[in-house]
Design a protein around this nucleic acid. Structure first.
Length: 942
RNA sequence: GCCGGUGUGGCGGAAUUGGCAGACGCGACGGAUUCAAAAUCCGUUCCGGUUCACCCCGGGUGUGGGUUCGAGUCCCUCCACCGGUACCA
């Protein structure tokens, strides 16, 4: 009876399915034990692409499965669910390629991946499985969208609240409305208090026209429609979120050019949460680099707004700066070419030149701006402004190095202390006045006219104000106060984060629960009328084009009239024809898993409280690529739900773990297009995998006789180098593959795919099997004779190592420990039962099938998944005393007996056993004895 | 450019966090078994020297320096690769 993994794995997979071994009970269900703690472990759910699962997925899901099994054996209620993120571009593009309806391909793909999951022996609770495309699921996605639409962020508390509350407060006169739409609190004694910080004539709510009232509320809704410059990708036929555009100005998916153009689109007010998304990052147990990426993306910078009066007019230009302390060094100003004041201020003689420059820079696409050299261009407007600090008259320029989208679209230029300003000033011969002295002794202290950083203020004084001699931090503080008291400016915090563009011109997404009436009237679908179902369409393809000016044409425009143009209360309406982006479904799926089959609510309160208690999801595992997309969006939605009382924790994911990529060769042809890696041959006919890294750069490869360039990168669909687990499962079994994937290296690091090494794991499992079972008779080779002391010690040490590794997810270390222990057992004819049990228990989270089988061989009842995790005895791990040779100059001068765990102990402690040591060291007093692994390494005399 | 990560044998990677560098696995070499092969088992495998009595000596963790009785690990310099980001004022 050899190790027949086919039969074993089939048997146990059927057993688990029949017995619903991994079904997770909810509080209140029969058999639920409230005394046990919960553990919610989640792997980022997959999108069911046609290529099925690749090794990166297998790695991800195996890792959470191991944790889930371990935690379960350690006595937790474990929630380890799975579902499918089946809306969105990848699923749709696959359907378009195959010419089949996405609903059909999605169903097929889900079927395939489900089979792959089962074959890997993953212990999911299948009763909780769902797809984001399920009617019962996207219904609630639409419901959450309605929550966003019907909410605003209260400027006083910073929390989301129903928009009706705002309406009531406006109606009751609690707030008035400022000229820019800002809310102005009217306090009891009739005094007004500007929340927006802008003075002006305030109006009462009742003085506004209904249209104005409506658009005012829209200014505050968390989901709103606005005409904003968006990323338009004609090749994909859709707009994209900032996060979906690469830094080369191309689409994240497909690498197509992206253009900026204004379109009226749905947008989510994620910026209302900038500060909380930033601050709440701190306590999270997330990898520091990911936190940093989110911080950078949110991009908080603290500084001040400063008003510069325009000479000879009563207008002023407001700028944002992080360095108000350099105000004295501001020798000119720059406006973005699109800045609204440009027309007004430009002097007649400069008008033509300025207009020409504006026209040129507007014609530049994002890509042009990126690829062109960063040589500074600009034009003088002929106007001047007054530097409020020193009263100097400074010229106002326009230049495209100033962006309209950040800050106020205008800057004060301090060429001595800013790279870009410096470059510009040199190009156009503008004055450079240093106002910060670099700290002494630094590299830059000789070049005072181009210094970036903190130092000491100089040249910054007049009769009423002096910054001279102040260090930068203090100077900032002093000038900020001076600006505020004199009405020249105010402290201000800026964020890079923009609102989230939420519309897509796609078929395969959640329809919005929104109707459009006359004009710009928006009608939200009533909660009882959701879901708004996605209509069946024969032609669901997006309209792809090369023309950046083409009008977007959403596929839902081709929906049947009765879907598209319903009549509400006798009035003809048109449905919102855009759909939600891919990210919508993944923003809250972890909540649905708590209570998947709930038909009344998006999640039952009690279930949510139980599974999300503590820090939300206890362990969330997925790839780094979601650092600023999914992980930011989901946090945002979660916070809204939290504010509205639908979620009980401020953050969704308490601990995040990023698994690294599995890397594999990929190939790109001369046009830069990625080609199928499995059709590439190399010039010497050698299989590519046997080459080492140095060779990788020098070998030549061909695809259909065309030379291709080798790149080495993440295994996956985008590089067309996916390897599916199917073949290896067939050839070696799921347990071997699982162990192998985990043995590849640290889970959080990227590592190359080297399938030939799997043989080592196969040998290990076969050896293990032979240790337990006489392959001829089928009898167990285990008996009840007691383990020797050294063996028991090793056993306990193994448990300790594996337990520690489980907590830190260092599964490669755990496996190495188990192999070592098994190698120890190899030489024995009979294996002591406790050693056998320990080994099998420790192995079971990683290799569940063979462990179940051996567990049964050892005479146990039930599934090993229900067994208890073995304990280790710390006492057994240390021998109490050992005898050591004392060497001086390489010669043994005596012996010393020390505690076995003596390490960096003082000689007083170590010498308790032997008072002669001090004498042995040439008459010197020994202070410290250094023992490493039972060997005396050094005696420190002092 | 800026921010972050990583550099250890032929390869993937260990190293109790400042204490025997190279665990464990792959590959390679030698041997046993076999008619033969596969599978399996045993031995060797960082480099150099000296021994082949398995012991000893010297060097060694991208580069150059430093701290320490002691550095793969801590500090500074530089280099290479990977990831993020970029006129963000």
């Amino acid at each position: 009876m050899h190790y027949d993994f086919h039969a074993i794995e089939k048997h146990w997979q059927d057993y688990w399915e029949q017995h619903k071994t991994f079904r997770t009970l909810n509080p209140g269900q029969e058999g639920f034990d409230p005394s046990r703690p919960k553990y919610y472990v989640l792997a980022m759910f997959p999108y069911p692409s046609g290529a099925g699962m690749h090794m990166g997925h297998a790695l991800n899901y195996t890792s959470t499965d191991i944790v889930a099994r371990y935690k379960r054996m350690a006595g937790y209620h474990v929630l380890h669910p799975i579902g499918f993120d089946s809306f969105g571009l990848p699923a749709e593009q696959y359907a378009v390629e195959k010419g089949i309806h996405p609903r059909v391909t999605t169903q097929q793909n889900i079927g395939n991946i489900t089979t792959q999951f089962r074959r890997l022996g993953l212990g999911f609770d299948w009763d909780r499985c769902f797809s984001t495309t399920d009617r019962d699921y996207y219904r609630w996605t639409q419901w959450i969208f309605l929550q966003l639409y019907h909410s605003y962020v209260d400027p006083e508390t910073g929390c989301a609240a129903p928009i009706e509350q705002l309406r009531r407060r406006l109606e009751s006169g609690e707030y008035d409305v400022g000229p820019g739409g800002e809310l102005i609190k009217v306090s009891g004694d009739g005094m007004m208090d500007a929340l927006g910080g802008v003075e002006g004539v305030a109006r009462k709510w009742i003085e506004l026209e209904p249209d104005q009232q409506r658009s005012l509320l829209n200014e505050y809704r968390l989901a709103y429609m606005a005409e904003v410059p968006v990323n338009w990708c004609p090749a994909l036929g859709t707009v994209l979120a900032n996060e979906e555009v690469t830094n080369e100005g191309r689409s994240d998916r497909g690498n197509h050019p992206v253009y900026r153009r204004p379109l009226r689109q749905w947008t989510l007010r994620i910026t209302a949460y900038s500060e909380r998304l930033l601050a709440d990052l701190e306590p999270l147990d997330w990898p520091e680099p990911i936190k940093l990426m989110q911080r950078n993306w949110i991009g908080r910078s603290d500084g001040a707004e400063v008003d510069f009066a325009i000479d000879d007019t009563d207008q002023s230009i407001c700028v944002f700066t992080t360095r108000p302390d350099t105000l004295f060094g501001a020798t000119y100003m720059v406006l973005a070419p699109e800045h609204p004041l440009v027309e007004d201020i430009t002097t007649p003689s400069r008008r033509d030149t300025v207009a020409e420059y504006q026209r040129l820079s507007a014609a530049k696409s994002e890509i042009d701006r990126q690829t062109q050299t960063k040589k500074k261009t600009g034009e003088f407007t002929g106007a001047h402004a007054i530097n409020p600090a020193n009263g100097q008259r400074i010229p106002i320029w326009i230049a495209d190095y100033v962006m309209m989208g950040y800050g106020t679209g205008a800057i004060m230029a301090v060429p001595a202390h800013d790279d870009r300003d410096h470059e510009f000033a040199q190009a156009f011969h503008l004055p450079i006045v240093p106002v910060v002295r670099p700290p002494a002794g630094t590299k830059s202290d000789h070049n005072i006219e181009a210094f970036i950083g903190d130092g000491t203020s100089i040249n910054s004084a007049h009769s009423k104000l002096s910054l001279n001699g102040l260090p930068t931090a203090q100077a900032k503080h002093v000038i900020a106060q001076w600006l505020t008291t004199n009405g020249y400016g105010r402290p201000r915090t800026q964020y890079k984060l923009r609102d989230w563009l939420f519309s897509r011109q796609r078929y395969w997404g959640e329809p919005f629960p929104i109707l459009h009436g006359d004009g710009e009237k928006i009608i939200a679908v009533e909660p009882e009328d959701i879901p708004v179902e996605l209509p069946e369409l024969d032609d669901f393809k997006p309209r792809s084009t090369d023309d950046p000016d083409a009008a977007p044409s959403p596929p839902l425009d081709r929906a049947p009239t009765d879907w598209k143009n319903p009549t509400i209360n006798g009035a003809a309406c048109i449905r919102e024809l855009n759909t939600m982006p891919q990210w919508a479904g993944s923003c809250w799926y972890y909540l649905r898993f708590c209570d998947t089959r709930n038909h009344e609510e998006f999640v039952g309160r009690e279930m949510e409280r139980f599974w999300m208690s503590g820090h939300g999801v206890d362990l969330y595992v997925g790839g780094v690529e979601h650092a600023v997309l999914h992980l930011l969006y989901a946090r945002f939605w979660h916070k809204v739900l939290y504010d509205l009382g639908h979620a009980s924790t401020p953050e969704p994911f308490g601990r995040l773990f990023n698994q690294g990529y599995i890397q594999e060769d990929a190939f790109r042809d001369e046009r830069g297009v990625v080609v199928d890696a499995f059709e590439v041959t190399d010039s010497h006919g050698r299989p590519a995998l046997e080459l080492d890294r140095r060779q990788r750069q020098t070998e030549h490869f061909f695809y259909h006789n065309q030379p291709v360039q080798r790149i080495f990168g993440k295994m996956g669909k985008s590089l067309k180098n996916s390897v599916t687990p199917d073949k290896l499962v067939e050839q070696y079994g799921a347990d071997t593959l699982r162990l192998f994937l985990m043995y590849l290296g640290p889970l959080d690091q990227s590592k190359p795919w080297n399938p030939k090494d799997i043989i080592g794991i196969e040998r290990f499992l076969k050896r293990l099997w032979r240790n337990y079972i006489n392959e001829e008779s089928g009898d167990p080779l285990v008996d009840d004779h007691p383990a020797s002391d050294p063996l028991r010690r090793q056993m306990h040490r193994t448990v300790q190592r594996v337990t520690d590794a489980m907590e830190t997810m260092s599964f490669n270390i755990a496996i190495a420990a188990l192999i070592e222990f098994n190698n120890e057992l190899v030489h024995r004819k009979r294996i002591p039962r406790d050693a056998a049990e320990t080994l099998v228990l420790c192995l079971s989270p990683m290799a569940p099938h063979i462990s179940e089988q051996l567990w049964r061989q050892l005479g146990a009842d039930g599934s090993i998944a229900d067994a208890e995790w073995p304990k280790y005895d710390p006492e057994l791990l240390v021998e109490d005393r050992i005898e050591l040779p004392v060497q001086v100059n390489g010669k043994v001068r005596g012996r010393i007996i020390v505690p076995a765990d003596a390490k960096n102990d003082t000689i007083e402690q170590a010498a308790l056993a032997d008072g002669k040591v001090a004498v042995a060291i040439a008459g010197k007093t020994v202070r410290k004895v250094i023992v490493v692994k039972g060997r005396l390494v050094n005696l420190v005399a002092q």
